[in-house]
Design a protein around this nucleic acid. Sequence first.
DNA 1: TGCACGGTTGCATTATCATGCAAATGAGAT
DNA 2: ATCTCATTTGCATGATAATGCAACCGTGCA
Lengths: 133, 133
Amino acid sequence: MHLVNLHAEHLFQALADPTRIRAVRLLAATGDEACLCELVDSLLEPPYKLSRHLKILRQSGLLSAAKEGRWVYHRLVTGAGAGYLRHLCDMMCALPDPAGVFAADLGRFENRRQLRVGGRCRVGIQNPELAAQ
Amino acid sequence: MHLVNLHAEHLFQALADPTRIRAVRLLAATGDEACLCELVDSLLEPPYKLSRHLKILRQSGLLSAAKEGRWVYHRLVTGAGAGYLRHLCDMMCALPDPAGVFAADLGRFENRRQLRVGGRCRVGIQNPELAAQ
DNA sequence: TGCACGGTTGCATTATCATGCAAATGAGAT
DNA sequence: ATCTCATTTGCATGATAATGCAACCGTGCA
């Protein structure tokens, strides 16, 4: 698979993985930002895995990251100059969820978000199975 | 890469390849249908390659195929029950084309389309480099 | 029935990607 | 400075996907 038309290919390639879809979908549906540990507790995937997937999404121009102390907040890019991102966002929100995977992700994220203090995450990974020792 | 959430994953996976993006984009922009030989002459890719890519797009639910004699016409599915397909179509049409790859595809398709008789393709692959012997 | 031709597919090869572990980075707190 | 902790990454491995060639299928025509 050779890249010739930079934009579109990187974009769809970035969405070709189920874990990355779940992450983008969560951010698109909530319109919120999330740090890695919140995503770990929401998607129930190990931190190193998500960290790498988020990097790919960042490189594709879909996500941006903002470091705040030890936490890194990820959010969808709402590019003014990129109208197709809006269509993409609309599409993500309109996708069916036959297996309920996304609904479960969203539920865990809502719960996890209640641990925030002043809108900021102040804890690490809560799920003991996924916390690095 | 494991499939857990059938719909979205097959969909984005199907769009993860540059050749497939070019094909879908062409059909989305023109709103027309096209047979394999027309696509070969438009995208300048060998028939066996396109045939397989089109199959993947069909299996993902993005394209439908209709056989007419020796020709097979491919077109985008305009599913009534699937609102996200409309958003996807909007997005494809809004994508930038920095390298002009898509514009070139479109130009070749417009030319090739003039060989139709009564709106139907009546010839095979025109490009001698790509015609099977 | 045999031929020509648009389209498809089996097979082997090569390239690409995702994953897990363990180690490392870097920023705050002690 | 040192320790803790959220996050990242190098490396090795296994899984998946893309490609080219050649053979094949199926339809229409002589």
